[in-house]
Amino acid sequence: MIKGRYFPAGSARVVAASLSGTRDRLVLHLENEPDAADAKLTSVSDPIAGVPRKLTFADGGVFEAPLGADVDGLLKTGGTFFARLTRLEANLGLVAAVAVVTIGLVFAAYRFGIPLLASGAAAITPAPVVAAMDRGTLETVDRAVFSPSQLNAGRRRKLQAMFEELSQLAGDDGPALRLELRQGGMIGPNALALPGGTIIVTDELVGLAASDDEIAGVMAHEIGHVRERHSLQQIYRVLGIGFMVGLVGGDASQLVDDVVTQASALQALVYSREFETHADLYSVGLMVKAGRDPLAFVGLLDRIVRDAGGSGETGWLATHPGTKDRREAVRKRAEALDGAGETAQE
């Protein structure tokens, strides 16, 4: 028998009461009422630490068992999911074990799970959606940043031909590649790749280049972004990180939200460094295939750095961070490919 208190249907009034009987036939006895009544149970609140169990009956009345009362014993519900879960949550040893496993899981999800899911999601994103994203983005940046290219027709044709040559070597595994030339305006010497295969190169970048190989290197780098679906992966990764943070701090207040937003922006930068390295390496491979100088674009990078000088990080650098570390990686890859090429020829 459990002594507790009873609320009549829809009322805040309390009556001392007791509940007895078995799961199949519960008997509710109200104080000051001589007759005990059969009570038809409709629901029981799930157990959770510190909260009294409440049993709701068919007539809308609610019986509240005091804390610690053996409701599960009376109703034979000790084996339900939440009954087990409540016992687990109160067992410090098990909680510690769950904590260790969860920390491991969070780390694994962050390090491997999210990148893996992101690249999977990027691969299955329907091509028409991606193409439409390109149109939308191009429309927006054309209005906000770019103006039509001022290069003469001959120069433009030569650049298109060079791009065509690289695209052919890059193969057609993925969206069709397309070169758009624009005057960069506020973003200066720059090149960007949209996920649907549109690659934008600015007049300023062309102007700064000392040779065609330098421009080709940048084009190959951007083609790398498209072929390896970096923009889409980036979008999905940021979503994934946001979701993870939401899980950990799901009940967090405004202040936490603000900081978390800043942190995700930083995280996006970390990811983009990783993608830059990949695109560099892709560029080296493609340039070697095209019989061009794979290291040329490093020179262009240096010139942009010098050009940006006092005005801070502008142009390609703002969207392509970490020039210093990258050059070394590019050189190594080029040497490795070079060596491999020579052995193959022998």
Binding site: I48, G50, L85, V95, V98, T102, L105, V106
Partner: peptide
């Protein structure tokens, strides 16, 4: 007490 509930929630959510 809440840590136990929270970490189990997190684990099951992941």
């Amino acid at each position: 007490e809440y840590f136990g509930i929270w970490i189990v929630n997190l684990f099951l959510s992941i």
